[in-house]
Design a protein around this nucleic acid. Sequence first.
RNA 1: GGGCGCGUAGCUCAGCGGGAGAGCACUACGUUGACAUCGUAGGGGUCGCUGGUUCAAUCCCAGCCGCGCCCACCA
Length: 887
Amino acid sequence: MLEKTYSPADVEGRLYERWEGSGAFASDVSSNAVPYTIMMPPPNVTGSLHMGHALTFTVQDILIRYFRMTGRDTLWQPGTDHAGIATQMVVERNLAAEGIDRRDIGRQAFIDKVWDWKEHSGGTIVNQLRQLGASPDWERERFTMDDGLSAAVRKVFVKLYREGLIYRDKRLVNWDPKLMTAISDLEVEAREIDGNLWHFRYPLADHPDRFVVVATTRPETMLGDTGIAVHPDDARYRDLVGQFAVLPLVGRRIPIVADEYADPEQGSGAVKMTPAHDFNDFEVGRRHDLEMINIMDAHAQLNDEVPEKYRGMDRFEARKAVVADMEAAGLLEKVEPHRHTVPHGDRGGVPLEPWLTDQWYCDAATLARPAIEAVETGKTVFVPKSWEKTYFEWMRNIQPWCISRQLWWGHQIPAWYGPDGEVFVAETEEEAASAAQAHYGKPVDLVRDDDVLDTWFSSALWPFSTLGWPERTEHLQRYYPGDVLVTGFDIIFFWVARMMMMGLHFMKDAPFSTVYIHALVRDAKGQKMSKSKNNVIDPLDLTSKYGTDALRFTLTAMAAQGRDIKLAEGRVEGYRNFATKIWNAARFCEMNGCVADPSFDPTRCGETVNRWIVGEVAKTAETVATAIEAYKFNEAAAALYQFFWGTFCDWYLEFTKPILQTPEGGSEHPAAAETRAATAWALNRALHLLHPVMPYITEELWANFGEEADKLLMSRAWPELPASIIDADATAEMDWVIRLISEVRSIRSEMNVPLGAQIPLMLTGAADASADRAKRYREIILRLARLSSIEVGDAAPAGAVQSVLDEATLVLPIADVIDIAQERARLTKEVAKADGEIAKIDKKLSNQGFLAKAPEAVVEENRERRAEEEERRDRLAAALSRLEQAG
RNA sequence: GGGCGCGUAGCUCAGCGGGAGAGCACUACGUUGACAUCGUAGGGGUCGCUGGUUCAAUCCCAGCCGCGCCCACCA
């Protein structure tokens, strides 16, 4: 006997172990089945499960479980990402707590510490994935710093270098002075800051009494100015082009150049040029051959290129000093408050400095070309399609990708330098050494590049590196390319685009045919959840409170395309109740002896209710399958919920009661055996349909009631039911019966008739002449509605509707049981509303155009609606007039 | 500045060219046999505003108002 309520905590762990232990998640490379592959976006090894993970992994798990049930050989490739900066920061923080700085212990010792940390604490996220019920092929779990994946990284780096697609360059980068590393454009976050615009006067070299006014939001950078730019057409400055100004506080002679970058409308029309500390100035500086003076060190403190007074100052300290000194010199024209965006590092959180350094770059524009084409030609499609525009926009304007990072944790760049700085790029130190020996004609000492690669470099290889590339493994041949990539839009650029580029370059094929972009889960304020903002909601709190299945169902029901998800706990609670409902429906079956009957043939039911329910199951199976395959997960969830609760429990199980439950002293109903088998069959099919979304409760119930309880539900086939199982007559009849009962209930309640018992309709017999019966039911309803006199006699058929009529006789004179004034007001309102409806329909029907063009069925439908509405109005009006008389 | 999306019940959200929906909350009634984590019935919405297309618009189109996100070098 099942417990009275479902207790997730008692079954989830046990079932998960049984699944994983039985090998039910494993792919089968030797299978004949068609493969279905999803590459799991590897979560950061430092991560812990947040709501975004819960959504993305639930969606992926639904797809995997569904396709596994349909017989595909599924590979859901799991793993974690080494997450360069994030992981290094975590370990550094831990060391700092012990008073250790990583520089004290040195690079190798630090890396060992990180590996230690990974061994002991890095498993959090994958264990949380298990709690979520995710079913990837754990035996194939990978880590982006694995030997195999690291080898793939080196191979890719060397190959791209030799093809000229990776190169070293001295350019401005976004420098994070806190983390002391370069970061890519994508890691820059623009924040609005209330600052000032300072207007400075720069005297002309040959006319010390004349000034050029320039404005800046970063006064300290003036110490690195090497020019002033004005627009070539700007009449105000035409005579100054070619002359020099004297940089105040420094005394440097700086040229005034004409460049179209200077906007005459903006400020004074003259712009100071700091080529080493501003991206625009850098470009102008290149065009005019301006000097590039780097005035800051890696901490963003001023270096020896500035007058002694400012050396060693922090950039913000220097800002104050420069402004004060300019003002003292009478060269500060004015200060305006100015709100502007300042680039910040998305992890470090401090303002970034454009800084001139040597870095490694990847020629993204060249790699992007085939990746653009793959989407243009439909080789890879985005769902929803609108994201393709975003993808194109970025890919067509892509900048060189800065791939080097000044960190210790990551894939160290496979480049070695000879004594004269000559670079040797090779997969191993030995190869580099022999290349160097060939170059110099003798063995030399090589120094390896300190930098590591951007984390996303290794992630970009994930779809093939995890399958064994560069070896031509069986897995690589079978599972590449994958079917669908499931992710949030926030990493389209970081990851999706780069996988496309690398996949096409190295595998000559796009890594997946579909990219499904789901909504982002946001916090209550609609803010994006991220580790660094510390606003993550722990989904495990919800799973422990309501059960994993309830959370999964909630996310599924909310996974509609096009809107971000702000999770409301009430929804989770509601779907927990749904789980309880499922559980209790199963209990009902258990109590009534509804066990699976192998001889039951759903296409050959005798009873109308049974013929009907098997058809409803078939329709639901079709709806759910179609929805999942179209990535319309919310539609799948809605169909499941509606079927199980609204159809199976509310109606079918109620209809079976008079059949299954033998009256006192009576004998069993002749249809009981078939109904028991049908009930068990329908329940078991429903468990299949629910399983991809709610794996735990369905598996647990299957273990108790399934046809083959020893076999896991999750490895069972998805129910494919023949269309012939849907019996149109039975469906039509049941539709009418349900409407009939609903209407009787409504009238009863409307008239405030205190009747408690359920209507014990006994629906047996074949669905013969169902149309006639339906018509009869309807007449009865209308007669009931008139209330004054229930004429049982002439409309009383045998059997099926007798009990309805019996109840109808209990309807009491309304004046006896209701508050007259209140009811009068209500009825008046209702009558008016009905009149309004009728007028609306009349208008539509009288419209010539409508009659001419509308489909006949629609016209007919409107006529029927009008008739119904009229009946309703009459009924209400009659009740109202009787009320007046009684009052 | 460019792009994308959203505005539907008190709240969180589906849906959609022909009778406005779900969950939660609310009201009334109902508990000795599946389920009170329940059942039955009910209240509550000019589907952001204004125009247009159409026989018909919550839905399509345009404009506007509000909100959010992404991208972008404005000193």
